[in-house]
Amino acid sequence: MSDFNASEQELERTLAGADGPVAVFLSEAFHPAVRTMADRLQHLSHDGKAFQLIDVSLAAYRAWAASYDVYGTPAVLFFANGRMVGRVLGVVEEGVLRSSVPVV
């Protein structure tokens, strides 16, 4: 999982320029729930589900997250070709997470 520290515009550019699906993990780490989801995402990304995983802090990307109607953590936004194609809020089972990954 790569921590993203650049600007919101840079994040948008990264999402638009990505070859395959991208999962943006909003991970304000105050609660074990965030860690649970981080582990599940990591596991999924190593388990044949090909997507790029980007970890961003909600506090640092608040306005960007709000533009996708996300106001809390843990949240995973799935992007394909620069457009949001799915999202998961809160803690979900790995199966739910797996089914949310877009096929590109």
């Binding site: 304000e28 105050f30 609660h31 729930a33 649970t36 909600l58 608040r62 106001y71 809390g72 953590t73 843990p74 949240a75 809020l89 809160g90 803690v91 979900v92 739910v96």
Partner: peptide
């Protein structure tokens, strides 16, 4: 149509 667990909403 499913439940949400442990989601931290932040009101600014």
């Amino acid at each position: 149509g499913r439940a949400v667990q442990d989601y931290c909403i932040e009101f600014e």
